[in-house]
Design a protein around this nucleic acid. Structure first.
Lengths: 209, 209
DNA sequence: TGTACATCAGTGAACGCGCGTTCACTGATGTAC
DNA sequence: TGTACATCAGTGAACGCGCGTTCACTGATGTAC
């Protein structure tokens, strides 16, 4: 009556439907996307991650070969998600000036700076990716290419060196958000100023060159 | 004769001159600057660091309160060093167009991309700093301000919005080198292209606005 | 200047902790008949 | 369609390892006389 029964394997791990398993895998990927962008790949442990996704860490390896493997898949997933959000908001082909100006303003907004969780991977993952193996870097490069194409489509169709201009614009965006995040807690005034300056520095230049 | 004598505290730690101690402290700071820029603050352990500097890890805490404390001092040191190198190369005040164009080309060179060890902290530390406490962020902001001032001095003296333009330029530089490092091993062609595009995107603009 | 002793920079073992990964185990799902 | 059994997604304890930090100890330096 009074004795406490210790049950080994108390958390009865039952087998789960194929669909549920696929759903769980996706849940881990989704959670990884958010946490990696917010805290950096190396600063999120497998235990953190699976717990946030609602599981225990052991089952992680039923879905991914390793954390490095997850990183690659997460990079792909993050770009896929980010690009589909953008595409949903406006036209994606060419010359769509206003929506693009809005997108840039959005990228350089204090809200985006403060919420990398739901933000663009271009600004939150590059340094981490630079320390990953070539596979992860290739996945990141693929995502970058699609962003470059998107920005390119906004310069006037006759413009030459559109690709160059798009890459330079993307560099400005990424540099600005990274710098503004770097000093956000220590010098909020400068942080805001960086976002504004990068916005002004790029506005009205879409038809250039 | 045959018996092996085990000496506790075999590494006879002798006391050291005040000057030597100060020199050793500086050596740790110097080593931290190189390693933190190359591998990131979190990816360099105190043991790594002190070993690279030629010491054992225990003595580290005679010089620095904690690793976070070292990070702050390292940020200051890295900017000091980087700025003094630049100042040595050319005039620092105003209008010095050619040296500045050279400096930008240097910042965006494959050599700088591949050697963050001796490179500029603006491109290698910001993401790490964004995850540090406010003190480190303030030190980084101070360094950034000095870089902004330096770039500002290059726009034509009558130009308005010089500070904005300087911040936007710095953002482009930082974004480009970070992106090019992110894909260096996975997509070298794109990596080079990013550096070139950012260079072209900024050339000949110093007298603008 | 010479002597006696306290100081403290540097050593290396040890601390608790969290990491990525492995593993024995569970039991409903999925499958072969 | 119903039954018997193999599969495998999920659990949680355990693995070796490296982390930041602490500590007892050393002995030449620095200092008081």
């Amino acid at each position: 009556m009074d004795d406490i029964i210790v049950k080994p394997y108390e958390g009865h791990a039952m087998r789960v439907t194929k669909e549920v398993a696929a759903q769980n895998r996706r849940k881990i990927l989704e959670t990884a996307t958010q946490l990696f962008k917010a805290r950096g790949i190396d600063n999120v442990s497998v235990a953190d991650l699976t717990k946030a996704a609602g599981f225990t860490h052991g089952g992680f390896y039923n879905h991914f070969e390793s954390k490095a493997d997850l990183a690659i898949e997460t990079i792909r997933y993050a770009f896929e998600q980010s690009l589909s959000e953008i595409s949903g908001e406006g036209a994606t082909t060419t010359g769509d000036l206003i929506p693009m100006a809005e997108r840039l303003a959005n990228y350089l907004s204090p809200e985006h700076r403060d919420e990398p969780t739901g933000g663009c991977p271009t600004g939150s993952l590059p340094v981490d990716v630079g320390r990953q193996a070539a596979g992860a870097q290739r996945a990141f490069a693929d995502g970058l290419e699609r962003y470059v194409g998107l920005i390119e489509g906004v310069f006037s169709p006759s413009a030459r060196r559109k690709r160059e201009a798009a890459i330079a614009t993307l560099s400005t965006l990424v540099g600005a958000i990274i710098l503004s995040r770097a000093v956000r807690d220590g010098h909020p005034g400068l942080s805001d100023e960086i976002l504004r300056a990068a916005r002004v520095g790029r506005e009205g230049r879409y038809a250039e060159t």
